[in-house]
Simulated assay, not measured.
Amino acid sequence: MLLGTFVPKLDEKGRIILPAKFMGDFEGGVFMTRGQEHCVYLFSRREFEALHERARQASVTGKKGRDFLRMFLSGASEEVPDKQHRVTIPPMLRDYAGLDRELTVIGAGNRAEIWDTAAWNEYYAQAEADFADTDEEVIAGIF
């Protein structure tokens, strides 16, 4: 399970050092793709393959489903961390997420997310207020 918040820097070659505590999940490679709210999602090979298998079973007759899968999979890239735990974020994904030198990487359970730090701080400020004020179930059977 991927948890926590980290603040690595993007180097001049478009690489980041992944948090050491994530490396057990990412040893077999990292799958990056467009995330919602303009971040970059990172999945382990196992998680990405399971997600893809579920997506393959979905109906392709619904336009929203087709559109989502096109955006999600057309932006996907497999990267292999080097010995220093660095991975390159492809230019297309850096542009999509507006990534600059200052980054925030969060663990989100089955995936990690890479955010531009300013975008994360803005998102966090709004989401934290909503989180603190939650008075109804938002995840069925959990909270």
Rank of each mutant, 00 (worst) to 15 (best):
Q57F: 05
F72M: 12
F72Q: 03
E37L: 09
Q36N: 14
L42D: 02
G29H: 04
K83I: 03
R86D: 05
S74Q: 00
E53L: 12
V87T: 03
P91H: 00
G75V: 10
D25N: 13
A50C: 00
M23L: 15
H85Y: 11
F22N: 01
A50H: 06
M92K: 15
K83G: 09
R34V: 03
I89L: 14
T88Q: 11
L18I: 09
S44P: 14
G24Y: 07
M23V: 11
I16G: 00
V30Y: 07
V40C: 07
V87M: 12
I17M: 09
R46F: 01
D67I: 07
Y96S: 11
R15K: 08
R70C: 10
F68D: 02
E78M: 10
T33L: 14
G98I: 08
R54F: 01
P91Q: 02
M32V: 06
G62L: 13
M32D: 02
A50Y: 01
R86A: 04
L73F: 15
E53N: 08
R15N: 07
I16D: 00
M71C: 02
H38R: 15
F26I: 12
L93H: 06
G29N: 07
K21G: 00
A97S: 03
T61E: 00
L51S: 06
R46T: 11
A50R: 14
V60R: 12
T33Q: 13
Q57M: 14
H85T: 05
